[in-house]
């Protein structure tokens, strides 16, 4: 039952998050906005379409979108969701998670390079640069949490961190902020990337998929939305208290993910996008927060020893 609910969430929540962000922005801009499940309709419309494939591409371009989505779905199985339980859990799964996402990204990057378009090359270079800056932060956070809790998987770390010591509240708060910046970076949201823009020269994520169409484009869009949902889920799981049972956990989880979507929509309404050269500083904040977490953990462990 738990697994079934988790699977349903993995299928539908990404569309809902996109829908909610769009709706918040529409309402802020004085418009009514599309339906919350419009992204799902878009996805099913794309599934029915045929594909236009450039004559210059190699088979890499053809398999990349499916491979990328497959990697992201595998990563989804490792993420603790409602009640802090994941479909799969094993020691070191957070490392697996990070590199599954990286594999998905790698597939998209090589397929973008495969088209030979200068735009897509530019987008790939930006994408890889910014996510490489986000990665160390994630590992320092997870590593510090693993150290203080003595556990080695997402599920167990997230359960143990809640009662890990006097500073656990502070640790969770810092980690949530760090993960939220990672969400904005990896999800391609403002102020890192502007998902609404039509200007190829400023794009990061969108410009990489200019040549994709039909079901492949649908996979990419769903994969990107799923990635946002996965990082949002990490935040929601961290925010959920340990040992409150599945149903209350599910309610809190849903509420937190919804709040995140609304907050992203709000941020995108009131913020301007950063200059490309300032983005690395912003992304590097994740690492800065992670290092603070690391020091707090060190101090706490030093006290216990």
């Amino acid at each position: 039952m738990k697994i079934l609910i988790t699977v349903l969430m993995i299928i539908f929540f990404p569309f809902l998050i996109s829908g909610m962000i769009r709706r918040v922005k529409s309402v802020w801009g004085g418009r009514k906005g599309p339906s919350l499940i419009q992204p799902f309709f878009d996805f099913s419309r794309l599934m029915k379409k045929s594909e236009v494939i450039s004559r210059t591409v190699s088979p890499v371009f053809l398999i990349a979108p499916s491979a990328s989505l497959a990697a992201t779905i595998c990563a989804a199985m490792l993420v603790p969701m409602a009640g802090k339980s994941a479909i799969l859990s094993f020691n070191g799964d957070f490392i697996m998670f990070c590199y599954l996402l990286a594999l998905g990204k790698f597939m998209l990057v090589v397929s973008a390079m495969d088209t030979g378009s200068s735009f897509e090359g530019m987008g790939s270079s930006r994408e890889v640069t910014f996510s490489a800056l986000a990665e160390p932060g994630f590992f320092i956070i997870m590593g510090s949490f693993a150290w203080i809790s003595g556990c080695k998987s997402f599920e167990s770390i997230f359960q143990a961190i809640y009662n890990s010591g006097p500073a656990s509240g502070l640790l969770i708060l810092l980690a949530i902020i760090g993960l939220f910046i990672m969400l904005l970076t990896e999800g391609g949201r403002l102020p890192v990337d502007d998902p609404e823009t039509h200007l190829e020269l400023t794009m990061i994520h969108e410009v990489m998929v200019l040549d994709n169409s039909g079901p492949d484009l649908g996979f990419i869009l769903y994969g990107a939305a799923l990635k946002v949902f996965l990082i949002a889920s990490l935040i929601a799981s961290l925010a959920t208290p340990t040992g409150i049972g599945f149903v209350p956990g599910l309610i809190i989880f849903t509420a937190v993910v919804t709040a995140e979507a609304v907050f992203i929509g709000f941020l995108e309404s009131v913020m301007a996008r950063m200059r490309m050269t300032h983005i690395p500083q912003f992304v590097f904040m994740i690492t800065a927060l992670a290092i603070i977490i690391f020091f707090i953990v060190m101090m706490e462990l030093g006290k216990a020893l």
Binding site: K25, M271, A272
Partner: peptide, 16 residues
């Protein structure tokens, strides 16, 4: 200009 820097509010209100 507001749209190009991703400023939704400016874009909407100047447009209106």
């Amino acid at each position: 200009l507001c749209a190009d820097v991703g400023d939704l509010t400016g874009n909407t209100f100047f447009g209106a």
